[in-house]
């Protein structure tokens, strides 16, 4: 199976890190800035930490304020995700990512989702529109 997948840049940057997959949409305000742990009740990755991860999830959710503030507070504590890989981009999440300078991509080739699992190391190159699986 291949190791390189095409994608589309939403917010620029190149980073390498560990994959964390969430089946649920994410609101970064309901993430504890001190630990990066998701604190939303009943969330798919409740209790898991987004800190320094390449977070793979469907979409953002929540008010027009809280994504930016959630990310900002995580960044201040060095617990923000390294990059975000999403399916359905919305303006609130995308502009928050751009302003907070967190790399973000969408439109990833479908096989990527079959290939990766939690803990894999991937390199997200938003600038060139590709994700490379480094280790799994």
């Amino acid at each position: 199976m291949k190791d390189k997948f095409l994608c589309h840049k939403l917010s620029e940057g190149v980073v390498e890190g560990e994959v964390l997959i969430s089946q649920d949409d994410i609101c970064y305000y309901l993430v504890d800035p001190e630990t990066g742990n998701v604190i939303e009740n009943g969330h798919d990755i409740e209790g898991q930490s987004v800190s320094q991860k390449i977070v793979v999830f469907p979409s953002g959710k929540g008010s027009s304020v809280v994504q930016a503030d959630g990310l900002y507070q995580l960044l201040m504590k060095n617990n923000a995700p390294k990059a975000m890989v999403i399916k359905n981009p919305d303006t609130v999440l995308v502009t928050s990512g751009i302003i907070m300078e967190v790399p973000m991509v969408d439109k990833v080739e479908e096989q990527f989702y079959q290939r990766i699992k939690n803990g894999d190391i991937v390199r997200v190159d938003a600038n060139n529109g590709e994700i490379i699986v480094v280790r799994n």
Binding site: S64, A68, T91, V92, L93, T95, S96, I99
Partner: peptide, 10 residues
């Protein structure tokens, strides 16, 4: 569009 508070300010 569903602007974020920051992008609406922009």
């Amino acid at each position: 569009n569903r602007e974020s508070s920051l992008s609406a300010l922009c």
